[in-house]
Nucleic acid binder design. Structure first.
Lengths: 230, 230
DNA sequence: TCAATAGTGTCTTTTAGACATTATATG
DNA sequence: CATATAATGTCTAAAAGACACTATTGA
């Protein structure tokens, strides 16, 4: 094999971490060090070390770049981006991850990391993005929207035990639509192993309302039948 | 950064090529060169060259290892496998692809490549598998089964123009179930942009039957509503 | 003719959606 | 009391599934 075809290249992991804050879908972005992309925002990413697996790199990227330790966060691969020209600094094959966490009360404890409303990204209210991260973010949001339909992924956005109102607001935030609370409840509880009832009742909000039953994630990963988008 | 953490490693592409032959779902496997896995079968795979994209590596693997030139084959990423110990010859990060082709009449023109019934893989009638390819194959088949439900992927298994009988046999082979021809037809033609009618009629098979209308793939990628598994 | 496949019609069951009603909280 | 949210009930429309029936071929 010739030297021009050396089949070893830089491998990185980029993480698209989504969460629900203020009833909106939000995404974590950081300001990278690389001077080539100064002033732009990027997904937290790190090069893969040869003594760690890809999942470990994803966790390390969140920890080092945004001080987020989320060992229990839902983490799954999104896809791998390997275009020759995607990084101006040289060829980098990047394994993108999709991470979902329950609402964190406070912004991340880090000066160069913040959450952005997903609906603002790509508009003048949103960040300038580095590399091909606009594409990765688009894919990540689409994946989340789609997986909410046929998997139990929505439970990764809420801290158990949760109420069905909280779960419904996840769907509403990710899909950007309003759902009928009565029909939503009926569908969720009739979907096998989606949620199981927990003990006690959740106190109502500041404006009153009947206390809600609590639930926990069930054993199902795929939903039968699916929760189809309206 | 220390020498022990050099963040460059071998990147490969492995392709799980699925097709329908003899009304069964079949998978292409090859006998690899590596002595460490002699006697075992593997997905066709090649190291990524630094002057080619990942898709190009996938096509090259099919060409070089199985003499399959399939520029029109449906090719999509499956996921990336990066466990530290998955290759006994050293760390290799492997981007797995899922490829779908219409039925090819003849076996591949290559001594060290052949198709296997997916239902035989993992049994005594099936091949011994190298590396972690049993896991990749499992993921590939599951992905294909799942994507048949909510995307128009099934049309990648048939050569246009096709009949709805041919399309139904794709679903039956991949899912391993029998479907009602009448209800299947009604569902397909009522799903927006799944298929569009083509000209002419297909001649019946050797045992007779009414000639069937021909169809071509429509513009839809996602199906609304989905074709849910029974 | 029969057997086989394509395509249509019809009926029943199930599910989705709209929306009214009841229950239990806050102010 | 009014208002807000949770939970249930009811009705209608749409979809899924079972299956009879007609249409057109080969043998």
């Amino acid at each position: 094999m010739s030297a021009a075809a050396v089949s070893t290249c830089a491998v990185a992991v980029d993480v698209a971490l989504l969460t629900i804050r203020d009833e909106r879908l939000q995404l974590l972005l950081v300001e990278p060090d690389a001077p080539a992309v100064a002033g732009r925002w990027a997904l937290p990413g790190r090069r893969v070390r040869d003594d760690e697996g890809l999942d470990a790199t994803a966790h390390r990227a969140l920890d080092e770049l945004a001080s987020i330790q989320a060992p229990d966060a839902h983490l799954q691969q999104l896809r791998t981006y390997g275009d020759l020209t995607r990084d101006p600094g040289g060829r980098v094959v990047s394994v993108a991850y999709l991470a979902l966490t329950p609402t964190s009360e406070d912004p991340v404890d880090h000066k160069r990391a913040r959450f952005w409303n997903v609906s603002d990204i790509g508009t003048e209210r949103g960040p300038e993005l580095a590399y091909d991260h606009d594409r990765i973010i688009h894919d990540a949001v689409e994946r989340a929207r789609s997986k909410l339909e046929y998997t139990a992924l929505a439970t990764a956005f809420v801290e158990p035990p949760f109420t069905l109102g909280e779960l419904r607001r996840v769907y509403e935030a990710v899909w950007g639509v309003a759902l009928d609370p009565a029909n939503f409840r009926r569908k969720v509880v009739s979907t096998a192993d989606f949620v199981v009832e927990a003990e006690g009742l959740a106190p109502p909000g500041p404006e009153g309302g009947r206390p809600a039953k609590r639930y926990r994630p069930g054993t199902a990963h795929r939903l039968h039948p699916a929760m189809l988008r309206p």
